[in-house]
Amino acid sequence: MLEGDPCNILENEFVKPGKGQAFNRVKFRNLKNGRVWERTFKSGESLEAADVMESDMEYLYCDGEFWHFMRTDGSFEQIAASKEAVSDCLDWLKEQDVYVVTLWNEDPIAVAASNFVELEVTETDPGLKGDTANGGTKPATLATGATIKGVPLFINIGDVLKIDTRTGEYVSRVKN
């Protein structure tokens, strides 16, 4: 916990002048807003541990204000996540897919998609026959509303694409 927010430690470097006090230069990521920053502590200083856990949850639906998820542990327990929590993966949210939800004191603060998701194409220019060899690409709009670039020309509406959520790039066609 740092300044009231849960954080995770990305880097922790031991710093000590030979005859001086020891310090730890720590790089944090704020789990609520993703902001990364650095703080220096005297070695041995302690911080409050945050009650944070990650849980696999299935995305159910959005009611316009909250995004509802259900635990996959058989308890069928549901939670409602705010727009702030789901903002990082709004483009990749598909009903019945499983996401990693970060809970802080039982409240969802972040939702992360898997590295790859499969989504259906809802809109794209018609494919041009015989034009696949020159490696041309076009944009496509997916079922979530996200638009991605770099889709091959042979992709049609209704095709299901595999997308890398870390880069937002097209990986392959799953089926048509």
Binding site: V15, K16, G20, K42
Partner: peptide, 13 residues
């Protein structure tokens, strides 16, 4: 002394 040590560590880096 703590503040000086920290300032020294940062400045010597």
């Amino acid at each position: 002394r703590d503040e000086l040590d920290l300032a020294f560590a940062e400045a010597s880096d």
